[in-house]
């Protein structure tokens, strides 16, 4: 099954990269940009038929390795 994992920095944690990119965009004239946050997307293909089981498996992977729970949240989307 195809799975997408979106790893996002927790909202209260600073994102210096996003801040800098926002500045650059404003510099280029895109001054409507209020905030930029840069996150990561990971695509996986996982063997299995039951999307709940796969969801649980991938969530475990996020906790173990894919995300840094101190800084990041994750969202697992299983595509049928």
């Amino acid at each position: 099954m195809k799975v997408t994992v979106n790893i996002t920095r927790r909202p209260e944690i600073a994102d210096p990269q996003g801040t800098t990119v926002r500045r650059a965009l404003v510099d280029l004239g895109h001054d409507a940009v209020r905030e930029v946050r840069i996150d990561r997307t990971i695509h996986l293909e996982v063997e299995g038929h039951d999307s709940d089981t796969v969801h649980t498996q991938v969530s475990r992977m996020c906790e173990q390795l894919l995300s840094n729970p101190v800084l990041e949240d994750f969202e697992v989307v299983v595509h049928g």
Partner: peptide, 14 residues
């Protein structure tokens, strides 16, 4: 340059 954010050199070129 520019913290190397996004990609190295990506912001500096502008």
């Amino acid at each position: 340059a520019h913290g190397d954010y996004l990609r190295t050199g990506a912001i500096a070129r502008f």
